[in-house]
Write a protein that binds this DNA or RNA. Structure first.
Length: 316
DNA sequence: CGATGTCAAGGAATC
DNA sequence: GATTCCTTGACATCG
């Protein structure tokens, strides 16, 4: 079992995950790759073996009005290959997760096509790096557009438009408001797409009768060519004070929010994780865990510590 | 240097 | 049809 986190390292100060400068300053994938080597240094020194790249790792790579950025994969080919070689040496499992604006099931052909381009490019980065089938690009089903059934079917239809390499990398995750495991399983039947089970999302949105363990095992069984992976996080339970601009006065006001199931806690509640993971492992076998906690890598290190030496857990 | 505004992008709820 | 929230960090500019 591997544990990983997304994008940002909290355990090091002044660490950048990618070249985030604005387009006026000509950011480039080559700079992001240098940062990624630093990230890999950290993964190596802490023993973390799974990592998700930032979605804008290659800045403006598919931006419709900025063609000057569109050749970055060619321009950084050698460096990407070297980065991939190093990932292999470190036995790292890598992934991407495009942003909320990338939507395969949109009714807009324009947005659909630009989304497909984005999936294709992120898959291509992993291809150039020489990553195996375990390195995936994660997406959600997308919007409802007033018609859940139609929008689900449109995902299946639009999936056929993906270039072969993009389709091979793309995997589908259940979300917390619109499309649950029942929906993603249906889409799997129609497309063969592999499924990520998100434990917290299943807590938020589960219109069927499946338990977390049942739903998870069903998702894991869609992986035929690589070890499956799940997302795990715990809901935030404490109340939270946020500051927002009050429209009437223009002043910043403090608002108190109730705890929300969909918000991520700083760390993972291992008293939930351990029995869940045990059951799933008994039923299915080995899988990896992407930790989506606010404390990122620190939460991974704590969870690894929490399960270390426990019967049934072989932490890689 | 600290504070504040801004960033490519969509969807859903509300009126 | 227009507006606001969602939500996050870091870049970039302003005073």
């Amino acid at each position: 079992m591997r544990f990983g986190f997304a994008v940002k390292i909290l355990g090091r100060e002044n660490h950048k995950s990618h070249d985030a400068r604005r387009w006026q300053n000509n950011p480039h994938l080559l700079h992001s790759i240098e940062f990624a080597h630093k990230t890999f240094d950290y993964l190596e020194s802490t023993g973390i073996s799974m990592y998700r790249f930032p979605s804008d790792f290659a800045p403006y790579l598919t931006h419709p009005t900025m063609p000057q950025f569109h050749n970055q994969l060619d321009e950084a080919k050698t460096e990407l290959e070297a980065l991939g070689k190093r990932a292999k040496q470190l036995n790292l499992r890598l992934s991407f997760h495009p942003s909320q604006y990338i939507l395969l099931n949109t009714p807009s052909p324009k947005l659909r096509d630009s989304s497909i381009k984005e999936f294709e490019m992120q898959a291509k980065i992993l291809d150039i790096m020489g990553c195996g089938d375990e390195a995936v690009v994660v997406t959600h089903v997308g919007g409802v557009y007033g018609d859940r059934i139609g929008s689900t079917e449109r995902f299946i239809e639009n999936h056929k438009l993906l270039p072969e390499r993009a389709a091979a990398r793309l995997v589908l995750e259940n979300d917390d408001v619109s499309y649950g495991i029942d929906d993603t399983l249906k889409i799997h039947e129609g497309t063969g797409i592999r499924l990520i089970f998100d434990h917290q999302h299943h807590t938020c949105f589960n219109i069927g009768q499946m338990s977390h363990e049942e739903a998870c095992v069903a998702a894991l069984r869609t992986w035929t060519n690589a070890r499956p992976k799940i997302h795990f996080s715990s809901p935030r339970t404490e109340k939270r004070i946020v500051k927002r601009v009050d429209k009437a006065t223009g002043k910043k006001m403090a608002f108190q929010h109730d705890p929300l199931l969909s918000q991520h806690a700083d760390y993972v509640d291992f008293t939930t994780f351990i029995p869940f993971a045990r059951k799933v492992k008994d039923e299915y076998g080995e899988f990896d865990v992407m930790v989506e906690a606010k404390s990122k890598d620190l939460a991974v290190l704590k969870l690894k510590h929490d399960v270390k030496g426990l019967e049934g857990f072989l932490v890689e």
